[in-house]
Write a protein that binds this DNA or RNA. Structure first.
Length: 298
DNA sequence: TTCCAGGGGTAGA
DNA sequence: TCTACCCATGGA
């Protein structure tokens, strides 16, 4: 079985990155908490389907075992290296984030833990679909919607499926898609997104362009049906932009209970004012507040 | 039954 | 800008 080793930046912590939000529980990801392993079924550009098994060695390096292929071509190895670096945000510099937090005792736990990297998907399409599946539902149902959707992707011989490409979703009649995924009214948004990608009306991967202003990007995301303030803010986070918030019911609850220390409902404006001093990092600080009670235990 | 979840679209002020 | 109402789905 081919094994690839990736060097990591100083102070990189694998597990806090893997469990940085719920994505590690959404197929084609999977994880083994006790063994601290992240799995992913991935379809490569040449169509072959592999199962990636990622873990961190004692040296700090990330090891990617590739199941499903006896050997890797240079192109395959390069692709897997790029995917692993992308999903773990290995190239993101968090130094300025940690420096920003140093004046705030509430966030003193974050830097020693090496938290702040969010696990993302190799494609923005996949992150967009999963974000859509987090809207107006409970996490358990988000998982179930993803599980059903992923069975539409190409199967991995050892079990599981790759994430289905937009072409696969766009080709399905919307009613069939909803009958399979049971995403309710979100199914129509999912189908429309897939169709717009296939018809080249939107180019999600173009969103990676660092020259794009966040405000412009935010508007583009919100122009998609089903993507409002929360979903657009969440997508910006996954794209590595944290200068906007993504205020959902969890964030409101954490702010109300843990920061504001009261039981009264709080207007989003007050939440925004609280995070404003964190500037370009406010969205990440907000998510760290949600994850604190969990991340501190890992 | 009713409420609501890691909300969002639309219409009407 | 804001509010009211609707939107499938399934668990509590």
């Amino acid at each position: 079985m081919p094994v690839i080793t990736l060097s990591t930046p100083p102070h990189f912590k694998f597990w806090p990155s893997v469990v940085s939000h719920g994505w590690c529980d959404l197929p084609p990801y999977g994880c083994d908490e006790s063994a601290r392993i992240l799995y992913r079924i991935q379809q490569l550009n040449d169509g072959s389907i592999v199962r990636l098994v990622l873990r961190q060695r004692d040296t700090g390096a990330v090891e990617v075992a590739v199941e499903g292929l006896a050997a890797l071509s240079p192109e395959q190895e390069n692709e897997i290296r790029a995917v692993a670096a992308l999903i773990l945000n290995l190239n993101r510099d968090l130094g300025n984030f940690y420096a920003t937090l140093r004046g705030h005792p509430r966030y003193a736990w974050i830097e020693p833990l090496g938290a702040g990297r969010l696990l993302v998907s190799p494609s923005i399409w996949e992150d967009a679909v999963k974000t859509l599946f987090t809207t107006n539902t409970v996490w358990k149902m988000t998982i179930q919607m993803c599980q059903r959707l992923v069975t539409l992707g190409d199967p991995y011989p050892g079990g599981g499926h790759a994430f289905p490409p937009p072409e696969r979703i766009a080709a399905m009649p919307p009613d069939d898609l909803n009958a399979h995924v049971r995403a309710g009214y979100r199914s129509a948004y999912l189908h429309e997104l897939a169709a717009n990608i296939v018809e080249r009306k939107v180019d999600l991967e173009a969103w990676r362009d660092p020259a794009l202003a966040s405000d412009d990007l935010y508007r583009r995301i919100k122009s998609l049906k089903g993507f409002g303030d929360y979903a657009a803010g969440n997508m910006l986070r996954l794209l590595g932009r944290f200068d906007r918030l993504a205020t959902d019911s969890e964030c409101r609850a954490v702010y109300r209970d843990s920061i504001n220390g009261g039981s009264a409902a709080v207007h989003d404006r007050e939440i925004a004012a609280y995070y404003e001093p964190f500037g370009q990092w406010r969205g990440l600080a907000q998510w760290m507040d949600v994850m604190e009670s969990y991340l501190r235990t890992v």
